[in-house]
């Protein structure tokens, strides 16, 4: 029994040590994906940008993230210009490749969320802003953006939860995150269920924490 407890404690410790990787990957891809999504939505408002943004969203929403990760880490990295170019130090790093794939993939989902929110801003309010003489920049900053963010928040929160879960795929391209550590421990110990349950608990804590936080922000905004 005490041996079992010692094993669980050691495993928990190993998983907690890997937590920073999962957190850093989640946070950096969330930032990257959100910024890229904003660019995509802005591009959708222009004639040249619209089809480009459309193709981007179509490709990244229509294919599995696992495939995208393999594409970046093994596929793109095998191309001559990358392999022998200045970007090679980046592309040989699995963490960077995981970040890049997550950022591109999630940007497509978040862009859809933002686009829907933008479409939901009442046109009457935009007209009212025009009518009282606001310029385009003021209009976007003072009327459209605040409304849009409030409307987008619940769905945006869902995408962030998805993103946290998706970081586990980084383990398939040798990143030693929480899932990666769990797999390593299992390879040594063959105690599948206990280890996976520990890892699952960590993800559950992260997603539940984020959900609770978002709900608080939503409630704050509603007042």
């Amino acid at each position: 029994m005490s041996e079992e407890l010692a094993f669980l404690a050691a495993t928990a410790l190993a998983i907690v040590r890997a937590l920073p990787i999962t957190l850093v990957l989640s946070l950096s891809s969330a930032i990257g994906a959100s910024m890229l999504a904003a660019v995509l939505v802005a591009a959708q408002q222009t004639r040249i940008g619209r089809p480009l943004a459309h193709v981007w969203i179509f490709v990244f929403r229509g294919t599995p993230l696992l495939l995208q990760m393999f594409m970046v880490y093994y596929g793109v990295a095998a191309l001559g210009p990358i392999r022998h170019g200045v970007l090679w130090p980046l592309f040989r790093d699995p963490l960077f490749c995981a970040w890049l794939a997550l950022t591109c993939c999630c940007s497509a989902y978040i862009a859809e969320v933002l686009r829907a929110a933008l479409a939901a801003v009442p046109t009457g309010q935009i007209e009212a802003a025009k009518a009282c003489g606001m310029g385009r920049g003021t209009r976007v900053r003072r009327v459209i953006m605040p409304q849009m963010l409030r409307l987008a928040l619940p769905a945006y929160g869902n995408e962030l939860v998805m993103l946290i879960k998706s970081t586990s795929l980084a383990s398939t391209i040798t990143v030693v995150d929480v899932t990666g550590v769990a797999q390593l421990v299992i390879a040594h110990s063959y105690r599948t269920i206990e280890v996976f349950c520990l890892a699952a608990a960590v993800y559950l804590a992260l997603t539940a924490g984020l959900t609770a936080l978002l709900r608080r922000i939503e409630r704050g905004l509603a007042q």
Binding site: V161, K165, S166, S168, A182, A200, Y203, L204
Partner: peptide, 8 residues
């Protein structure tokens, strides 16, 4: 099941 990665 909605809070845990599908991969796990």
């Amino acid at each position: 099941l909605r809070g845990v990665p599908e991969l796990l």
